[in-house]
Structure formats: structure tokens, C-alpha cells
Design a protein around this nucleic acid. Structure first.
Lengths: 333, 333
DNA sequence: CTGAAAGCGCTAACAC
DNA sequence: GTGTTAGCGCTTTCAG
């Protein structure tokens, strides 16, 4: 910028004013043109670091995500990228994979001072240090799919209770009574809520939840597969499975095919999320659709509002999931 | 930092030296302790902007990705996150989705001055402006899966020719001769190379490539489905399909099931990438495994080496894909 | 309307 | 061993 000031023969401050379109301070049209021309010619690019130093926003939003492998979160991140870019922001990715590297999470957070705000995607309660750090950092933080209320942190969640109820209702209408649930191994966030909701709702409807009908596995297709293997040993085995996520449901579908169990004839399967591939499984997966884009948008706006207004307004938005009927569910034999 | 200097009663530079573990300049153990204590008490966090202003690295690496929806790229980004964090870096996501918003790509790049280096993931040739910008920016750029040699830009690629040959070879050993190919709609990067390799190799083996046996569709499951529908109208229809990506292959599997075509009995399908879900499709997908993690690591190291050494060393690394035999391929009827 | 100058938080010569 | 000082690139009063 100094260079361009020198070339044009004006002061740096004038250049700054032109380049920032500072409407409060009028500039001669001619000066403006000369500056603009010189800037273009010299290939001037503002240095964000210097701007940031002056207290300007970095236009970066941090996303701390539990597990990027999960296609559901991948889709969420994509949504965030789009939303962010539409608002002139870019996204910085952190991830809090495995509590072993918890110490490293610290670094992630420290580095995140680059950002104007932070989005927590997924439950981070097993990373107390991270949350502690976040509380100290003087940045807006919004929790998405935290699945549990974190004091002082505004959050955007899905109504797991109603969603799971809708899933059970669908199966019940088809005539199922022996319904199993496959949830996450660590009892975290949404998965924990879904499991609790499942048990509560089944009881409420007077449906049995026999020993072994609620399983905890890793949130992977492999996890879903091993859960199904175990479920099919039970006497009597379930005629339907509600999976806590589509990833698990995909594993159930896969394992069923391997075991020669026909879906939906011998077994109905419901997933949760409606991730992009859910419509293309064999058979297509009936699932509870997460309104991912609206949720991400809401979280983003809560975050940027907080950046602009400065204040932290602990609030909470809850979205509803909707049942998508495809062909992995049918009446029991 | 000024505060902590004031509290301890030493100069700012001393504080800086302690906090940066500057071993060249010795500090009294006692002073160090006092500084550290004060820093902890005051909850001091270094301001990265100020550091960056001094010319220090931002420890951010930019990833410009073609399409984050693609689970393959999602996996690649995850790999990058892990690699980056192991080296103290964070990842900034840009994306160049659709050439309509090409102008916006400019912004992405401008913003990317935050970063120490940039990784291009996927072919960006349809975004000439982006590439132009990148050339002007004085940052190390490494292209991953560019699928085409970009002048002056070091790249990491997979050997599409050999991979596709291995796929064809596998089908030929099983006894297939009527083999179709489903590739990307825009003739870009890897997908283009794979298609060209397919045609070349088939000719070389003296196998027919009838009219309509090479299809161009969107890189989505839906694309794979519509391609299969078209292929099955052909007389004679193919007995095997080589898909340019697993995403397309998943769509083919799905469509086959819908159409009552049994895989692998009536049709063999080969994918490309071995994305996480490929092992859990119904039936499990035979595919050409991309060595994603080594490739990402290589690209990351090329980028950071360039950051450290300062020089741009145009170079190119090529990795081999390996055939993973699962159950979507079998001898033709 | 434009210029001069201070300062954002930090580092690195250089001096003591 | 520690303090002083200048300056990274930019914005922003405050004077002209």
C-alpha cells in the first residue's frame, strides 16, 4: 500500500480511504481513479493480518467437529462452507477426534483466535478441556447437535424425542412390536438422547424392550453390522431396527444382506439423518431427515449476530426431523 | 503481553523471550517462572494476527476443494486435517463449486492470504480465474488429483491409466468382454483421464467399445443410476460396468437393484476410490483403492517444504491405486 | 479534500 | 540477563 501511495504520489491514508470505499470521507474522483488504477497494476492485495491487528474481523469461522469421517458431518460442513461464503466468511476446520489427543484440542482452540466465532458440531462433553478453553476465549461460540445443554452456550438442536417417536410410530403402524435400537458406543449427545427417547417412548406405548434390544456400538457401518449380528441371536429376534444414525443403518443393511436376511421382508430398518447416500442404499433407507441446512444456517447466524452485536445471548433453537419413507421398512412377516 | 510485563515488572521483550522459549537468549529461572505464572493467571493468548504481521507463518493451510459433497473428498479433507494438526497446522476450507460462482472464487483466494500454502483438491481447470489468481499470489500451491499437468504447479496424482487397466484386467479374467464405462459429465481431471485410459486399454486388448458404452453423467449416485438405465437399453447390454468413482458405482448398484438386475450375477460393477462406505454397499463394491492418506501427506509435505525453503520446486508425484476385490464382480452368466 | 502520525501486539536487533 | 527501540501493514484520529 505504501508502494501504491508512492507511485500515485498521495499519502497512504488516502489510498486506504479509496480502497476501503470510505463513504464518510469524500475523495476527488480523479484521485480515486488514479489510486484504483495503480492498485490494479501493482496487483495489490490487502494483508489480512494487518487488518486483524487493527481489530477488524478475520472473516473466518471456526468449525470444531467431532468426526469429519461421518458423512453427515461432511454434509454439514459443506453446508457451512456455502453459507459462510455467501456471507463473506471462510471456514477453519478443527477436529476433536478421540479424547487421547485432548491436549491438542487446546492448540486447536488457541489457534482459533484466528476466527471471529466458533461452531461446535457434535457433542464435545468428553473433551472438558476444550469446553473450558472455549469458555475463556472471548469469542462467540454456538453449539450444533450438542444434544445436551451446555451452560452459557447458545445451541441449535434437533428434537430427538419427537423424531424417534415418529420412527417408532411408523413401525408400529406397519405392525411391528419387536423393535430394537442401535446407538452410539459412548453415550454422547444426540445418540444418547435418541436412545433415551427410544426407551421412554416404547415403554409409554406399552411395547416391550427386552434385554439386549438396545445396543451400543461405534458410529460406523461396522458397528451397525456387529449390532445386527448380536440382535439376530436373540430369541425372539426383533422384526425392526431403529438406528441412531444412517451410518449405522447402512451397516445394518449391509450385514443383513450378508446374513441372508431380506430387508424389508424379514427386517425393517430406520436410520436417522437422511445423509446424501441414504436414498441410494439397497434397499433405499427409510430415515428421519435432519434439516441440516436450516440448522447450519441458524447456527451461523447466531454466531455472526453475536460477532456484530458483541453480546453473548444464550439461546436455543430446536428443529424438527421428518420421516422419509423409503423401502427399508414394511410390515413384518 | 504488555499487561503481563507490567505485572511482573519486566520488559515486554523479556516476556516475549520466555513465552517463545527462545533458547538462544538465556533467562533467569526465577524471572521465567514469574512470567509464566503471570501469563497463566492473566489467561494470556498470543495474538496470531500480530505474529503474522511480523512475517511469521499463520500455520493455516488452505484447501480449495472442488466438491465437498463427494465423500471421497470429505475423506481426503479429514486426512488433511489430521496430517495438518500433527504438524501444528489448521485447515481453511475454500470451495470452487460450480463455475457460475467463479467470481467468488476470487474472494476465496484473496482471503487465502491468511494461509501459508494452498492445496488444490480436484481439477480446477474450469476455473481459469482461480488458477490465474493462484499464480499471482505468492504462496506455495500444490495440486492434488488435478488429473492434468498444470504448468508450474507441483502435483500429486494417481496413475489412472494403470488403475483402469487393472480394473479391466480383473473383469477380463472373470470372462467379461462387454464392458461399459461411466464417467463424469464435465470432462475434467481424473475422470477424463480414466475415461481416456479405459478406451485406450479396451482397444489395445481388442475388446469392443460399442456406441453408447461410454457414458457421461454427473458425479452422483443419481448420475450412475441414469447411466445404467441407458446402458441396459443397449443391444447387447454390457455385462460389466467400470465407474469413474465409487459415488457413481453406488448409484449403479442402487439402480440395478431397482431394475431387478442382480449384482454380480447379471452385472459386475467396479468403482474407483474405495471410499469409506464402499465396503458396506450391497453387495460390497469391488473398487480401485486410492491411497488417499499417503497422497494427502505427500501433498502436505510438498506444500510445507515449499513454505520453509521458500522456493517453488515444480515436481510431481504419482501414486498407484490397487484393486480391492469384493463381491460386486463375478463371471458373466 | 488530503497528509502526518500514532498505534494495534508482537519480535528482533542492538544496547546496557 | 534484561531493557530499549523500531517496525511489520493497515486504519484512524487530528491537523492542515
Amino acid at each position: 500500500m505504501k508502494d501504491i501511495a508512492a507511485v500515485v504520489g498521495v499519502s497512504q491514508s488516502t489510498v486506504s480511504r479509496v480502497l476501503n470505499d470510505n463513504s464518510a470521507i469524500p475523495i476527488t474522483a480523479e484521485t480515486r481513479q488514479r489510486v484504483l488504477a495503480a492498485a490494479a497494476r501493482l496487483g495489490y492485495r490487502p494483508n489480512p493480518a494487518a487488518r486483524a491487528l487493527r481489530g477488524a474481523r478475520t472473516m473466518l469461522i471456526g468449525a470444531v467437529v467431532r468426526d469429519i469421517t461421518d458423512p453427515f458431518f461432511a454434509a454439514a460442513i459443506e453446508a457451512l462452507c456455502v453459507v459462510a461464503r455467501d456471507h463473506g466468511y471462510n471456514v477453519v476446520l478443527g477436529h476433536a477426534h478421540g479424547s487421547a489427543q485432548e491436549a491438542m484440542a487446546l492448540t486447536t482452540v488457541l489457534e482459533s483466535r484466528h476466527c471471529d466465532a466458533i461452531l461446535l458440531m457434535g457433542d464435545m462433553r468428553d473433551q472438558p478441556r476444550l469446553i473450558e478453553d472455549l469458555r475463556n476465549v472471548h469469542l462467540p461460540v454456538v453449539a450444533l447437535w450438542q444434544g445436551t445443554r451446555l451452560p452459557q452456550i447458545p445451541s441449535v438442536d434437533v428434537d430427538n424425542r419427537r423424531a424417534i417417536s415418529a420412527g417408532i410410530e411408523h413401525l408400529r403402524e406397519l405392525g411391528h412390536t419387536r423393535i430394537a435400537f442401535v446407538g452410539g458406543s459412548r453415550r454422547l449427545g444426540d445418540k444418547r438422547q435418541r436412545e433415551a427417547s427410544f426407551v421412554a417412548r416404547m415403554r409409554q406405548l406399552g411395547l416391550p424392550v427386552p434385554e439386549g434390544y438396545v445396543r451400543h456400538v461405534q458410529n460406523t457401518p461396522g458397528g451397525g453390522g456387529s449390532a445386527l449380528a448380536a440382535l439376530m441371536q436373540l430369541r425372539p429376534p426383533p422384526t425392526a431396527v431403529v438406528a441412531a444414525t444412517d451410518v449405522i443403518a447402512i451397516g445394518v443393511l449391509h450385514a443383513a444382506a450378508e446374513m441372508g436376511i431380506s430387508v424389508p421382508r424379514d427386517l425393517s430398518v430406520i436410520g436417522f439423518d437422511d445423509q446424501p447416500l441414504a436414498a441410494y442404499t439397497v434397499p433405499p433407507l427409510t430415515t428421519l431427515r435432519m434439516p441440516t441446512v436450516p440448522m447450519v444456517l441458524a447456527a451461523f447466524q447466531m454466531a455472526t449476530d453475536a460477532v456484530e452485536k458483541g453480546g453473548r445471548t444464550p439461546s436455543r433453537q430446536v428443529f424438527q426431523a421428518t420421516l422419509v419413507r423409503r423401502r427399508s421398512t414394511a410390515p413384518p412377516r
